[in-house]
Design a protein around this nucleic acid. Structure first.
Ligand SMILES: [Mn+2]
Ligand SMILES: [Mn+2]
Ligand SMILES: [Zn+2]
Ligand SMILES: [Zn+2]
Lengths: 127, 127
DNA sequence: TGTATTAACGCAACTAAAATGCATTAAATT
DNA sequence: AATTTAATGCATTTTAGTTGCGTTAATACA
């Protein structure tokens, strides 16, 4: 189970995700919120938000953990809304890509989960 | 530039990759080779092997770094042979998948690199 | 085959991300 | 308002990987 109490810390985090950047790393959040809450609180609150299907996480190319808000379709038990993530090597922004990636059939393998991480140059930096 | 001298450590590593498991994490290698070389040596030798296109690396679901041998088509300057990686949640093995994943067009984005990491159950564990 | 050069190594110390233990605080419930 | 306990803050620890530096051993060459 995830969030039980709507604490100050949780409200601040939810607010940040709503007035949304596309995705933010745990490290960035810890730094950005260092005057408002302890880094342990950031990590633990993110854990709970993810448990509840409010945010989802993924690891970037360097192994850092990133978080982004889930679409309303996600719940605690079912994490729908699976999509690739994109890191712009120019502006360093990381974003969710609302596209579908099809994995070809892999004989005798049962696919559980697919994580796609793309790097390149984003639309904003491209023109 | 990568490997210049064929040291004992490099030979041991190459030997491991040849009598190949599919993919192995740096952490596993450090542990497995702890009696034969220092962990710093493992990390540095892997770096050089990757520079030369002899092995390639990728980040697993938990953020750990994994290594696998490259196909002969890879060189120091051109890393061909891009493919998804698969982790079996039963036997915990991680392997290279020799399949092609097509990324749909993303308007105005320039794609540089794509990493696909799949989890599920491997052929061996499936029957 | 010996000597010189320096890439590579070992070891200790360090860094960064994340996790943990525990006493304290503040949401929620009554 | 009093009670309960989820959530927090702070200190400490763990884990993965890196760095600096003195030493060693692979290669080249006399
Ligand atoms: Mn996303
Ligand atoms: Mn591979
Ligand atoms: Zn950009
Ligand atoms: Zn398996």
């Amino acid at each position: 189970m995830g969030i039980v109490r709507k604490t100050k810390a949780v409200k601040i985090l939810l607010d940040l995700f709503d007035n949304g950047f596309s995705a933010i790393s745990a490290v960035d959040l810890v730094e950005r919120l260092k005057d408002e809450m302890n880094k342990t609180t950031v990590y633990r609150a993110l854990d709970r938000l993810e448990d509840d299907g409010i945010v989802h996480s993924f690891v970037g190319k360097s192994g850092l953990k990133w978080y982004a808000k889930c679409k309303s379709s996600c719940t605690a038990d079912h994490h729908n809304d699976v999509h690739p993530h994109f890191e712009c090597k120019k502006c360093k922004k990381v974003m969710c890509l609302p596209v579908e990636v099809t994995i070809p059939n892999i004989p005798n393998h049962t696919i559980d989960n697919t994580a796609v991480f793309i790097t390149g140059i984003c639309d904003n930096c491209n023109d």
